[in-house]
Design a protein around this nucleic acid. Structure first.
Lengths: 498, 498
DNA sequence: TGATACACGTGAGAC
DNA sequence: TGTCTCACGTGTATC
């Protein structure tokens, strides 16, 4: 079926030059097997966009991808693109290395053609062809956008699967090892120049982070990811609506499409192997499915997986998730050490349920503590009380900082509110002379001119000069009709008194 | 001894017109009894300034005062001025009502004279007479500064004492009740127009908050105060030094004066009445003793209590505190409810120590939780796990907010770095014509003119006009000597390329 | 050896 | 009713 991919040999060469040979082969096999149609893809909006964006924005990470585990109708499970967030390095020294050298119009055109091809091959329609909307495609974007079309069988070998099956985070921070973990995406990854890639297993999938900066392992980042995707980074300001419940557990609706439903189902575990206390909720903390953010604030909604199986209902989803959990989740094989505390002392097993529930509650609380440690810098001591104390002072510090900055901003934005300009107004027979005077640093030159424009005033002369060391005088004359002059004066005064 | 206070009748009338009759009498009796010399005043810097400022700055509170409990050498205890923080309402609608009407120079002079008088009466030297440093005295400042000279015997009746003895916070949010609780300070309080006053009992004293805004009771504020003054709002970034220990408990040194020592002593309580788990540490989180903050950033160090007993040592302090705790601290008389959990079941009393320690640990943790609730807005649910989750998302939200604002600020500060102006430069025989053009919003008008001044350039003509809707063109001609023209052009370009 | 911190099982209130 | 949360006493690891 490779005929679908290119119509001639030149095409093949072009595509391979962009994606690399390995990636081409991999994607072709995926496309021709029509792999995606075999998966029960749960929902288009997983509500993780905000979490991903939180991870990427303001950090050194260039992108974050949530690989979602789905169960195949023909048996087995796989990780497919769930959602992602990508940030173009514009500020900072972290420039896109290769594309910085030879990014030219021609190359962009090629890249866009390849993306369009991929889009078509995986069944995308023409309307949602995001490639056309792009003006230029950086190498990072190229890597990110092609990643959307990948999926990894759980019996294959690659970074995300490895991490998911072992239940352990993988942190690779040198370029060569990165290549190995990117597997078939290695070519593009090398082009971008990723130095660090991280896979973090979370409920229902794996989160992948990548950056072109070499970043040593940080447990706090892993904890942060786990918190956002496992414990639920929400329940805060934005989403306070009560979730409907099913089986006594929370049920989060996916985005605006009320038909696509995520069940948060916490299966009973009889033995305490694995993570008995992890709640499997993935709270809805955002909307949109795939996002590219850069300085131009372009957002993409590629609407991937266009041929997913429709018409599933909540029940089938539950069993689907349970299936995938059951057949492919030896997450954390080794028993948790349970270092302290009373020995089990299980004389009877009558109240085992209560014990288990309490265990889960404690574990949940501890997860929160770990997550809190991850976001609070300068933890003085490692015990819980100190942590809380540090968190509190940190919060109040942040609050004051924000307050200070906000007042600063207000002052900066409305300098005239602290120094209303003096306005002399002399009406003459056919025109008027206006003389505005105010401190140098806060002269609202743009404000003056915008006010002109708003009232369709044509300034004939417009002279600025300084007097008294720190005052600026702006003199201009305008054409007026009778009566307009006074009106304008009032308008100007009003405009600059805010 | 009222002769000391005024030399003639007119003086008395003047002082009474400022302070009110009642306050005058009260202060005179204090001054003449030389009350302060009877107290064992522990340290000049209590290290609570930062805590007080944290409470006041960025809130609606106009001031915060820490009334410190001290034991008298002649028996009994009293609350005396420990430290305070006062914020002048400049922004916001909360203007100083009365002084807004008739604040004039003459009145300020009178106020300052009264303050000087008070200062002298209570033994202040001339050098540390802060009144002279003030340019004007608002009514709020008048109230605040005179409060410094107050002290309240624990057998008297007034807001701070009431709160301290009962161990309960007092929250009064209407003007008339406020007056009652201010007692002898009521006159000045009315002048300022306080609508709300709060007394929060903390270890070793009472914190008083006041505001001219009517503020309904908020437990979170009380919790916050208790956290800062009881649990210790520090242990964060700024103070990470290890405290020396005494009796296995933390010992916080007071400020820079290593002679003045605060002992954090957690007395053993045999029954669990009261607050058995409160640790009596008052961590050092600041320095300075009394602070007035306003837009002019004047800070006062009045060095009150100039005749305190010197030469006390750590031991005497401990006993002093214990004494005051013992004879006047039925703090929280009613037994703590202990609603849930296993019943005591005290068969033996051998491991009672361990049990007690664990109790204290739990209580400390809970105090932190309460305090955390106080600083995190929008708590979704009241349970601990949700609280932690909310706190985490709140922190990350604040962090991103700060990040965003910081980048915004950078952009705002250097607009030219994003739009280097075009500069046309035409050198003529005796002068030069410069034409600068750049986007309207970022026109560095002040920058241009400052550059002129820096290089002693006299602009002969200076005309601004707009073209193309969003560009501003600034044309000016300058006198030049030979060779200067090119140099100026370079200077201008350099200045605006940052 | 004591002080400290944590986890565990458990009883019980709350919804 | 069950489910959830909490506090308590306790065992134990760490320093």
């Amino acid at each position: 079926m490779s005929e679908k991919f290119w119509v001639n040999v030149e095409d093949k060469v072009v595509v391979e030059s962009v994606l690399g040979t390995e990636a081409c082969q991999f994607l072709i096999s995926l496309a021709s097997d029509n792999v995606l149609s075999n998966f029960i893809t749960p929902a288009r909006d997983l509500g993780v966009q905000q979490g991903l964006s939180k991870l990427v924005e303001g950090s050194n990470w260039n992108y974050a991808i949530f690989w979602q585990v789905v169960s195949s109708k023909i048996g087995g499970s796989a990780l497919i693109w769930g959602d992602g967030h990508c940030r173009n390095p514009k500020e900072g020294g972290a420039a896109d290395k290769i594309s910085g050298e030879d990014s030219n119009f021609e190359k962009d055109v090629v890249k866009k053609r390849v993306l369009e091809k991929l889009h078509a091959c995986f069944g995308g329609s023409d309307e949602d062809n995001f490639a056309k909307k792009l003006d230029g495609v950086s190498d990072l974007e190229m890597f990110y956008l092609t990643s959307m079309y990948y999926s990894f069988q759980l019996d294959s070998v690659c970074g995300p699967v490895e991490s998911y099956k072992s239940g352990k985070a993988i942190w690779v921070s040198d370029a060569s090892s990165c290549s190995h973990h990117y597997q078939s995406r290695a070519f593009l990854a090398r082009v971008v120049g990723f130095q660090t890639v991280v896979f973090v297993p979370v409920n229902s999938g794996v989160v992948e982070l990548g950056t072109i900066k070499s970043t040593p392992e940080e447990q706090s980042i892993v904890d942060m990811v786990k918190f956002i995707f496992t414990v639920g980074g929400s329940s805060s300001s934005q989403t306070t609506k009560a979730f409907p419940k099913i089986f006594g557990h929370e049920l989060s609706l996916g985005g605006s499409n009320s038909q696509s439903v995520n069940i948060n189902f916490s299966p009973k575990v009889e033995d305490d192997s694995g993570f008995p206390s992890e709640s499997y909720d993935l709270l809805a903390i955002g909307s949109s499915n795939g996002c590219r953010s850069d300085s131009n604030k372009i957002e993409l909604f590629p609407h991937l997986n266009p041929m997913i199986v429709e018409g599933f209902n909540a029940q089938s989803r539950v069993s689907g998730v349970e299936l995938s959990k059951d057949d492919a989740l030896p997450q954390h094989d080794e028993r948790k050490p349970r270092k302290r505390g009373r020995k089990p002392a299980n004389g009877r097993e009558e109240p085992l349920n209560h014990v288990e529930a309490e265990r889960q509650r404690r574990e949940k609380l501890n997860q929160r503590f770990y997550a809190l440690r991850a976001v609070v810098p300068n933890i003085s001591k490692m015990d819980k009380a100190s942590l809380l104390g540090d968190a509190i002072t940190y919060i109040t510090d942040l609050q004051t900082k924000i307050r200070v900055m906000e007042t600063e901003k207000q002052i900066a934005n409305n300098p005239q509110q602290f120094s209303v300009p003096e306005i002399d107004f002399h009406s003459r027979h056919e025109d008027a002379v206006v003389r505005m005077s105010c401190p140098l640093d806060s002269h609202p030159i743009s404000g003056v001119i915008k006010t002109f424009r708003e009232h369709q005033i044509l300034a004939q002369e417009s002279d600025v000069s300084t007097v008294d060391n720190d005052k600026i005088v702006h003199t201009f004359s305008i054409k007026t009709q009778a009566g307009d002059a006074e009106q304008l004066k009032e308008k100007l005064l009003a405009a600059f008194s805010k």
